[in-house]
Structure formats: structure tokens, C-alpha cells
Design a protein around this nucleic acid. Structure first.
Length: 552
DNA sequence: GCCGTTTTCGGCCCGACTGTTTTCAGTCG
């Protein structure tokens, strides 16, 4: 089955080359639009493709269909091939650089013969970019900074991507007879938000038959590095008895700083497993996720292990539906929520300023209210009316206070104007937090892991404001976000904040992201009592009521 | 290239920002 992502990329690539060649802008747009539509279709696209029913999808006409079907069949596109005649394919990667569009790329190509990222970097370092007409020193420096960032990012992958790879390796390991036991270790076992290498510890009884299963890239003592096509290294620590298995797993799990601050002496490490290892230095067992240096910045009373897991989640909050930019209907989202064991929900589609996401104006909110009343009754499952309201540049929300009274649950999030100064952004968000109708601050720092830095903001002040105004802080579980960052969770917990763990789901499949948010919350040591999603229906109603009381 | 129609052509989103200019082009969302 052809990868959906490859097809999306293909259409973008065709659009880029067409633009580079100065073709009809509407034609270009048709390809980009098609790619966006496919992305939004998610896994439904696979069905349309398989059944050759793409013609039924609005926006995918005859031209795009033939490109897609050809690629699905042959793994290549004659359309792109003929466009790329006389142009090296590496030119395409230039389009992914922020700040470079078709016009600038054309100048680079025509005047300096630049056809790849490598050549671009070289030209920047030789100061040849700054001299081009339409460019300048600032642009050159921006490009260089962007290229540096890329090099750094390329060393990591997102947690969900690493999780997927790890699962593949686990499937493989469990088929090998000589393997008695295995576990993820290091970054993955500690649940880092981005992962630079995938590591396992295995317990085996026959080394030879085990190693035969892999193509070995390198070997160091008891550790093998495996040859793979993955972007990051994969390695396995091999142990042959239970004692060294337990010790190796323990040593490779905690961060170096954690282990040394705890005062472990590995030569004298005593006991049969992790619980006993901790006991031997008079420390309570610490769950793997929390074995980080930052652990020691927690107040003693907060150093308890997290007691959270998916089964504690009662309320599904902050998700999107086809009312705004979600891919699935409210009804199918609720069906999935029930299936996953949630007891109630609050739908939070985008607000009216979010025109890019088909945000809801007042009228449509009231329309949605009717639908969810109906669903609540039909499915015997309470669905609250929520909204993810844009925080406008001046810090006000998207609706009048008078109208906000109609909405049960208000998530306030920044979606635009990321470039304010730190002080303006901080003021803006604090004002939104102080709004008497705000219940939750959504993805508080706006970062997109391995792609966009958080906006400039004084996170401490934001957290203080949330604590002072009884506004929960989101742990956005989308693996691209994982925002609030776990390092700030410690500070927020010390301040007594409440949290909300949300997939920010735009489809039923996204709901499973919740697990990553829970892992990150566990990393912060968060207890069920600190999470509003863990409230029972009645407790949640009480939580919402606090607002009605302060708005009397 | 796609869509929709007074059905085979004509219209398709644009405002904000940035860095370059010398009044604006290019890029982004």
C-alpha cells in the first residue's frame, strides 16, 4: 500500500516545481489544495484510493486522480518527472526552507546555480547570498540559522515516531527464541519528548543465535548497534543472566545526572531489581519516567510517583469535529470516546477568528448546542458545549462575556500573532487567563517540536496567573506539541496548578494521542487529583460552576 | 487543475509581515 504521506508530498512537490516555473497560480493551488484535502481525509483516503473512488472527493479532479493512481501503482510520477527535466530533484528540498519561496529559489538557481541545501549553505558562508538583488545580510543570516536548526532537528524524531519503531523491534524480539526478556531503555523508557536513539536491553540464553537475527553496524562491549533504515540509531544491550539484565536496565534508564545526584554506586549496587536498588540507598522507588535531574527540583511532598493511567481519564476535553477543522463528526468522536472508556466530553471546536479552521460564530455555536443536546440524550453520554477560543492580540477572547455565558467550557489558546515581544505576549496571555470565563489555557507555549520554537513568553508568570485564577493548564498530548513542557510541570505543581490532558484530537484516531500526554504527565509526577479530566461527571460540573459563581 | 453552471468556460482568498527597497515584492498562514 502506497504511503499516504508520499502522495501528499508528491502533490506538494509538483506544486512547487510548477510555481518555480511560473505556471498558472490556480493550477498550482489545485495541487496544494488536493494535498491538503488528502491530509484532512486521514485514513479514509486509503479506502478511496483502494476502491478507486477518489473522483467522489471534492477537489480531486481528473488530473490529480491520474497522478495519484499512477503513483500508487508504479511508485513514481511521469508528471513530476517531466517537470523535473533539466532541473535536479534536490532543488525540491529548497522549498522546505522557511523564508524561501519560488521567486527567491529561482534567483538562487539562475544566478548562482544553487540546486541543493548543501550548495546553499556553502554560498551563505561565502557571503554570496547577501549580495544578490532582493536578498541581503539579514536574509542570509536567517537562512544559515534555519539550516543550523535543521541539522540539530535531524538528530531527533518525535516520541510517537520512536514509539512506532520500538513496537516494530519489539515484535521482532518476541519472535526470537533465545530472547527471554527485553525492555526499552534510556530516552524511550524515560519518555523524552524527542528521541535521539532507540535502545533496548535483552536477556538471552544463546548469543550466537540472537546476533544472527541482525545486521550489525557496530559493537561495543555488551552492546550492538543495528543497521536499519531509521533516521536514528538503534542499539541493544545484551545480557545473559537476570542480575546483569536488571542492573543494565537500571543503569541505562535514569539520566546520568539523576543517577549521580541520587548517589548510586554501581560497583556496590545490591538487590534483585529496581525496587531493591533504590532501597539499598534508602530511596523510595522512582518510576522510570521521573528519573531525571529535574526530579530534585520538586518539593519533597510532590516527589510521589504519578498514579495516572488511561483508565483514570473520565472526561474527554478539547477535541475538534467537522463543525470546524476536525475530520470526524461529533457523533463518531463521541462513539469513540465511549469505546475508549470516557464518561463525558466537552467538544471544543475553533472560534470565529480561526477562519483558517472554519471557526464557529455565535450562531453556529448555538446550532452545535442543539446537536449535542440531541447526542447527549440519544447516547446517554453528557457532552458539554465547549470552545477553543482564540486569544486575540490584546488578550481578549473571541466572544463577548455576555455570549460566553452560553458556553460550558472555555479553552483559551494563541493561534496567531506569534511574534509579539515577550512582555506583550505575557500580558496578552495573562489577560486571557484572567478572563472570568476561561477554564483552561490551551497549548501554553505554542511550540511545535522539531519545527517551531515556542513564542517568547514568561512561562513562570503565565503559570502563576493560572494558579491565581483557578485556570487549568493543558498538557497537549499531540506528539508534535507535548505542551506544557514536562520541565515546567514541576514548577506548576509546586504552585498548586490543575492540569488537563487533551489529545486536541482532530479525528477519532488522534484520540490515542492521549497516551503520550499521560506519559508526559507521569513524567511530571502528576497525581489524578491534579487533573480535571479525572473528575467524575458531578465533580466536573462543580468545577464548571465555579465560574457561574464568580460571574454573578 | 477544479468546480459549477444560465453546462464546456470563467473564476478561483487575501491580509499581515518582513526585509528589501525607495514605494513594494515575496512569503506565510
Amino acid at each position: 500500500m502506497t504511503n499516504r504521506k508520499e502522495i501528499i508530498n508528491l502533490l506538494y512537490n509538483i506544486a512547487d516545481v510548477l510555481e518555480f516555473k511560473g505556471e498558472n497560480p490556480f493550477k498550482i493551488n489545485a495541487f496544494r489544495n488536493g494535498a491538503n484535502i488528502i491530509r484532512q481525509l486521514g485514513d479514509k483516503f486509503d479506502i478511496y484510493l483502494k476502491e478507486k473512488r477518489l473522483g467522489e472527493v471534492k477537489g480531486i479532479g481528473k488530473g490529480l486522480q491520474s497522478v495519484i493512481y499512477e503513483y500508487a501503482e508504479k511508485g513514481e510520477s511521469s508528471e513530476l518527472k517531466s517537470l523535473l527535466e533539466n532541473i535536479p530533484e534536490s532543488l525540491l528540498e529548497l522549498f522546505t526552507i522557511h523564508g524561501l519561496g519560488p521567486k527567491k529559489i529561482k534567483v538562487l538557481y539562475d544566478q548562482l546555480g544553487i540546486t541543493s541545501i548543501g550548495e546553499l549553505e556553502y554560498a551563505c558562508k561565502e557571503n554570496r547570498i547577501a549580495l544578490l538583488k532582493g536578498f541581503g545580510k539579514t536574509t542570509q543570516e536567517k537562512i544559515l540559522a534555519e539550516l543550523e536548526k535543521r541539522k540539530y532537528f535531524s538528530k531527533y524524531i518525535l516520541l510517537n515516531q520512536a514509539d512506532k519503531i520500538a513496537k516494530e523491534i519489539e515484535a521482532e524480539l518476541s519472535t526470537i527464541k533465545s530472547v527471554k526478556k527485553f525492555s526499552r531503555t534510556n530516552e524511550l523508557r524515560r519518555i523524552r519528548e524527542i528521541i535521539s536513539q532507540i535502545e533496548f536491553v535483552v536477556l538471552i540464553d544463546k548469543e550466537k543465535t540472537f546476533i544472527e537475527h541482525f545486521e550489525i553496524a557496530d559493537k561495543k562491549e555488551n552492546r550492538i548497534f543495528i543497521k536499519t533504515n531509521y533516521q536514528i540509531p538503534v542499539s541493544i544491550y545484551i545480557t545473559k543472566d537476570v542480575e546483569s539484565y536488571e542492573k543494565t536496565l537500571f543503569k541505562t534508564t535514569g539520566s546520568e545526572e539523576f543517577l549521580s545526584k541520587s548517589g548510586f554506586d554501581f560497583i556496590k549496587l545490591k538487590g534483585k531489581g529496581e525496587t531493591e536498588f533504590f532501597k539499598s540507598i534508602k530511596m523510595e522507588f522512582v518510576i522510570p519516567e521521573m528519573r531525571e535531574e529535574e526530579y530534585f527540583s520538586l518539593k519533597e511532598k510532590n516527589r510521589k510517583n504519578s498514579d495516572l493511567d488511561f483508565s483514570n481519564m473520565q472526561g474527554l476535553l478539547h477535541f475538534h469535529t467537522t463543525f470546524s477543522d476536525g475530520r470526524d463528526t461529533l457523533e463518531s468522536m463521541i462513539n469513540k470516546a465511549k469505546e475508549l472508556g470516557f464518561n463525558y466530553a466537552a467538544v471544543c471546536d475553533h472560534s470565529k477568528s480561526a477562519f483558517y479552521a472554519n471557526g464557529l460564530n455565535e450562531e453556529r455555536i448555538l446550532e452545535q448546542k442543539k446537536v449535542l443536546k440531541q447526542i447527549t440524550a440519544e447516547k446517554n453520554f453528557v457532552v458539554f458545549q465547549g470552545i477553543e477560543s482564540d486569544i486575540l492580540t490584546d488578550g481578549s477572547l473571541d466572544y463577548s462575556n455576555d455570549f460566553l455565558k452560553n458556553i460550558d467550557f472555555v479553552v483559551a489558546s494563541v493561534h496567531s500573532q506569534f511574534n509579539l515581544t515577550e512582555s506583550d505576549m505575557t500580558k496578552r496571555i495573562i489577560k486571557a487567563v484572567e478572563n472570568p470565563f476561561t477554564d483552561l489555557l490551551g497549548h501554553p507555549t505554542g511550540r511545535l517540536l522539531l519545527s517551531r520554537d515556542s513564542y517568547k513568553v514568561d512561562v513562570k508568570k503565565i503559570i502563576d496567573a493560572c494558579a491565581a485564577n483557578d485556570v487549568a493548564i493543558e498538557i497537549n498530548s499531540n506528539p508534535r506539541r507535548l505542551d506544557l513542557d514536562w520541565r515546567w510541570i514541576y514548577y506548576a505543581r509546586n504552585k498548586g496548578c490543575k492540569f488537563s490532558i487533551n489529545a486536541d484530537a482532530h479525528s477519532t484516531e488522534d484520540l490515542l494521542y492521549t497516551n503520550y500526554g499521560i506519559s508526559i504527565a507521569r513524567k511530571g509526577g502528576i497525581q489524578q487529583t491534579e487533573v480535571i479530566n479525572c473528575l467524575s461527571l458531578n465533580e466536573f460540573k462543580k468545577f464548571l460552576k465555579r465560574k457561574a459563581e464568580r460571574n454573578l
